[in-house]
Amino acid sequence: MKRRDVVKGLGAALAAPALISKAAAQGAAGFPSKPITIIMGWPPGSGPDVWHRSLADAMTRILGQPVVVENKAGGGGTIGPAHMAANAKPDGYTIAHIPITVLRFPVMRKVSWDPLKDFSWIVHMSGFQFITAVRADSPIKTKQEMIAFAKDNPGKLTYASPGSGTSLHIGMELIAKHAGVQFTHVPFKGSIESVAALEGGHVMAMAGGSEAYPMVAAGNIRALAAWTDKRLPSLPDTPTLQEVGLPFVFDSPYGMAGPKGMDPAIVKILHDAIKQAMEDPKTIEVRNRFNMQDRYMDTATYARFNAELFEKEKSYLESIGLARKD
């Protein structure tokens, strides 16, 4: 169901004039007075989608107006936010989930949006967590051994990632660069295919997300390192990259934003509601089920974080040759 009030062209001609004037008269006072739509760039049923649906549920109770999640998947999660930035009114009734690709794609290719100008940041929420893993019967037991192996056998160490230009691919290439070794990248579609390729012995290692945890728990594959700043609660015995001497923290952070030019007072109302919803025990449970950490940041911090992230992405992608050339 679309409750977007972007009524233009023939739509405007057909719409009752009363409805339009009502929409125009709304300000921060009395917000929200009608349903709010969260645009979700990932397909239905994915981790962030399910979590946002539970958040929307909680926000509905907090704000007293229905909050609905609308999927607009595609383009690595960017089609939804890009569409919102171009079409939605900055009235707070249409906001979007912002994955890291919104900041990364502009570095890689020509896109329709300016990541630093076209959005009103609201809140930073969480991120996906990543690990490096090998098969349980692999002679490689630690991350250091993996790097040592790559040093002795240049290009022989093959690893699966969920695709080129994903945080996992970029992370592995930066690790290789830092350690002065060369890995052979074999991109699969998503972490699940990577797990299957690793288990079937088609690659020697994988860089993947939480999809791999059950296989680690079952003892089929061995986690070498977690890419987070702290050890993962679900894998307490796995050291972080920093613990094994690699000065990196990689994850795929995401938050929420609206179109540019939103009234700060409305941003505040939305921020407070999302924050409160994130603290709801039910939504915390859903988030934990999908192995996503709580990485709350307020509006100002999030805006600063994004500016820094964009610069960081630029230098990362340039150093491994994935930045756009024109």
Binding site: A73, G74, G75, G76, T78, I79, A82, M108, R109, K110, V111, S112, G163, S164, G165, L322
Partner: peptide, 15 residues
């Protein structure tokens, strides 16, 4: 390679 193929600049064709 994460390159776009035959998309003619359309975001909808990325996937």
């Amino acid at each position: 390679t994460a390159e776009e193929r035959l998309t003619f600049g359309r975001l909808e064709l990325l996937d």
